[in-house]
Amino acid sequence: MLSRRSALSLLAGGTAVLTLGAPAAHAHPSRPRPFGRYGSPARRLDPLTLYVDPHGRGDHPDVQSAVDAATGTGHTLVLAPGTYRGAVTVAAARTGLTLIGASGDPRDTVIVHNRAAGTPRPDGSGTYGTSGSASVTVQAAGFTAHDLTFANDWLRSDNPEYTGTQAVAIKVQGDRSAFYGCRFLGHQDTLYADSPALTVFARQYYRDCYVEGDVDFVFGRATAVYDRCHFRALTRSGPVSAPYGFVFAPSTAGANPHGYLVLRSRVTSTAPDGYYKLARPWVPSSDLTARPMLTVRDSRLGAGIDAVTPYATMSSGFPWQEQRFAEYRNTGPGARVTVPAERPQLSASEARSHTPGAYLGDWRPYA
């Protein structure tokens, strides 16, 4: 099986061979219908649809130029299979933007960049920082993505001198952001589900998505629902003992009644049994009043999760026991309750307030 770096290094040639040993289809320049059932520049579905293709058969050869051209609201970008390398920012003015991978297989269409928090900026003004490391940054409200891969292929092993090893695949800040059938690939801080400000409770929905990483690879202060998703904790070459890392690191604002909700999902791992914690709370220095919130319910937790002590404290003074962590009706070896005090459980009546409807309110992306 290819290593993750070997697999992602093939992306530059237009082939998306990613993790789990599953090769994706090649992007063939001669393919007569690169945009599948979504039309073409010659047979445009509507004036607000733009076509993106690295081989020149669309309106734009790269994602950022297409985003820049999609002025106003309600545009759709259809991406032909291929690899789109380079950072992408969806500014706040691009409301209601939809990105679609034309093939329907997220492994075929990859948006990827390669930089970490500790990567020096070219102008010498310092390093990028965690937010600046993101391959894709979504600031706009009403963003939707279908059947795409968002990746950051920066690796610690290639840069052992770095201390800032966070490398974000996507940072999502906009309210009403939804992802269907997407993949998020990275190591530390892969999926940054956040909001534009401490007082803004941005809502996000992820369905049938795949997320992989090692340290805090799903993190941030958004109100986010992860429905029927697969979280994959990776083996790390550096640590010689547990824990290798943490799946979730929410930083929910104390005033926000809803943080992360994980339901009908699964957590697997390539690491030894018990080498991962399910979560730890992130109380950032910018918001010491945060009360991180995570509910995992009706999900399967694999043997990679430490069943005895699945939670850990990130910062002294903010123990996980004082945050809002809970579980309900989970299964699998990583969900076994051996020390009840280490695994807070919701009652049936409490669980009724931990649903997509309760978290997302009048927005119903799951309907």
Rank of each mutant, 00 (worst) to 15 (best):
F150T: 09
V110W: 10
Q204E: 14
G118R: 07
L198P: 00
R264W: 12
D108G: 14
V52H: 06
A70C: 10
N114R: 15
G259T: 11
L10T: 14
P250D: 07
P81F: 00
R329N: 15
A140H: 13
N152C: 10
H28Q: 11
G101W: 01
T149I: 03
D306G: 01
F35Q: 07
T190S: 02
T313N: 08
T309W: 03
R221M: 11
A151Q: 04
G274R: 10
R156L: 10
T355S: 10
A141G: 15
R115E: 10
L11D: 12
S316L: 09
G118D: 10
L97H: 08
S157M: 00
L234Q: 14
Q323M: 14
F35K: 05
I305Q: 03
G186R: 02
S30G: 08
G132F: 02
D194K: 01
Y226F: 15
L18T: 06
V218P: 02
T49S: 12
C209R: 01
S269F: 13
T190L: 06
R343Q: 10
R300T: 15
Y275T: 12
F35H: 04
T119C: 09
T127I: 12
L288C: 01
T98S: 15
S347C: 04
R44V: 04
S265F: 15
D227E: 15
G254R: 06
A93I: 00
V215L: 13
P250A: 08
A91S: 13
S265V: 14
R266M: 15
L288E: 14
A367K: 03
R264K: 15
T199R: 07
V262N: 09
T71V: 09
H187Q: 06
G96R: 04
T190V: 09
F318Y: 15
F150L: 09
V63H: 07
S285G: 13
P34R: 02
T252Y: 04
L45C: 00
P106H: 08
V112K: 09
R291V: 13
A202S: 15
S131T: 10
T15A: 12
L261W: 07
A22V: 13
L301Y: 12
G220Y: 03
A66S: 08
G174F: 02
F150H: 10
S135R: 04
F217N: 00
V225T: 13
Y366H: 15
D216N: 14
L148P: 03
V211W: 02
R291I: 09
Y84L: 02
V52S: 06
A169T: 05
S177V: 09
S133F: 07
Y205A: 02
G58K: 05
L148H: 06
V52R: 03
G129F: 07
P340T: 07
A249V: 06
T338H: 01
T137E: 13
I305A: 05
S131W: 11
